[in-house]
C-alpha cells in the first residue's frame, strides 16, 4: 500500500461521530473519509456500529455529537441536495411487492428526476442481466432477483455516492459473485464512491479498496484488505474479523518474521 495521501475528492466525511442509545455508545468518535471512485468497506460483528453509522450517514438517525459532510456540505442542512446525488440499497429493504418491476423503477426514476426513464430502466436491467424481469411482479422475485432489482433502483440516478448495506446477504455464491462483479463494473465505469457493509469477507476482498473494522463503535483498524491481513496475526480477512469480534483487537502478539 502506498503511503501517499489520496488526492481524490472527499465525497463523504464523518468527524468524531458519536451516537448513544440509552447511555451506550453505538458509535464512539468515529471519523473517516470516502473518496470519489473508492469502495470503502465498513466491517464489524453484529452490534459493532456499522448500521448505526450508515443510518447516520443517510440522515435516518441523528448523531449525538460530531459532524457529517457529503460533497463538502454539512449533511443535515443539505440532506435533499445530497440525497439527489446519492443512492442506497439494502438487503433489509424492499420495493413494494405488489407492483411490477418497471412500475417500481419508474416511481423512483421520477423521484430522482431521471431523464428518459424508460430507456434508463431498460439499460440498467440489461446491465444487471435481468431484462426479462421487467414485467414481473416484484413480490414474486427470488432473493437474487430482488437484490438486482434493488441495485437497478440504486443506480437509477447515476449516483456519485452509493451506500450498499449487505447487498449479497442471503444470496447463493453464484448470484453473489454476479452482484459483486456488476457493482465493481459500474463503480469503475462511473467513478462512484461506495460505502459497503457486509459480513461476507469474500465480498470485501473482491470489492473494497479499503476497509474499516469497527468494534463497539470504535475503529480498530483501517487499510486495504491485504494490508490488514498482513498487519494481523491472522491468515485471512475472515480470521481477522473473528479475532476483532471476540477480542476487539487485531493482534495477539507481533507476527513472527518467517526469515528469522
Amino acid at each position: 500500500m502506498s503511503d501517499a495521501p489520496d488526492t481524490r475528492e472527499v465525497i463523504l466525511e464523518a468527524r468524531e461521530l458519536t451516537r448513544e442509545f440509552d447511555g451506550v455508545k453505538a458509535l464512539d468518535r468515529f471519523s473517516f473519509t470516502l473518496h470519489r471512485g473508492e469502495v470503502l468497506g465498513l466491517l464489524g460483528a453484529n452490534g459493532a456500529g456499522k448500521t448505526t453509522a450508515m443510518n447516520c450517514l443517510l440522515g435516518l438517525t441523528l448523531p449525538t455529537s460530531g459532524d457529517l459532510f457529503a460533497f463538502g456540505l454539512p449533511l443535515q442542512a443539505n440532506r435533499i441536495k445530497i440525497l439527489r446525488r446519492s443512492n442506497f440499497s439494502s438487503a433489509y429493504t424492499a420495493l413494494p411487492g405488489n407492483l411490477l418491476v418497471w412500475q417500481n423503477l419508474l416511481v423512483f426514476a421520477r423521484i430522482y428526476g431521471v431523464p428518459n426513464p424508460k430507456k434508463k430502466i431498460a439499460e440498467l436491467l440489461e446491465l444487471l442481466e435481468i431484462p426479462h424481469l421487467n414485467k414481473r411482479v416484484t413480490g414474486q422475485l427470488s432473493a437474487g432477483e430482488s437484490t438486482r432489482v434493488n441495485l437497478c433502483k440504486a443506480f437509477l440516478n447515476d449516483p456519485e455516492l452509493l451506500m450498499l448495506d449487505e447487498p449479497t446477504a442471503s444470496l447463493d455464491p453464484d448470484i453473489a459473485d454476479k452482484v459483486r462483479k456488476v457493482v465493481r463494473k459500474v463503480q469503475r465505469e462511473r467513478n462512484i464512491g461506495i460505502l459497503y457493509t457486509s459480513h461476507n469477507m469474500r465480498d470485501i476482498e473482491e470489492v473494497c479498496d479499503r476497509v474499516i473494522f469497527l468494534h463497539k463503535g470504535k475503529i480498530v483498524c483501517e487499510g486495504t484488505p491485504a494490508d490488514i491481513v498482513a498487519q494481523s496475526s491472522s491468515d485471512n480477512l475472515e480470521d481477522v474479523f473473528i479475532k476483532i469480534a471476540r477480542d476487539g483487537e487485531i493482534l495477539d502478539e507481533p507476527k513472527k518474521d518467517p526469515a528469522s
Partner: peptide, 18 residues
C-alpha cells in the same frame, strides 16, 4: 402503512423526498 408493510419506507426516506 403501505410503505411500512412493503418495507419500502427506508427507500422513500433516503430518496430526495421532502
Amino acid at each position: 402503512l403501505e410503505d411500512v408493510w412493503t418495507r419500502n419506507l427506508l427507500n422513500v426516506f433516503v430518496a430526495p423526498v421532502r
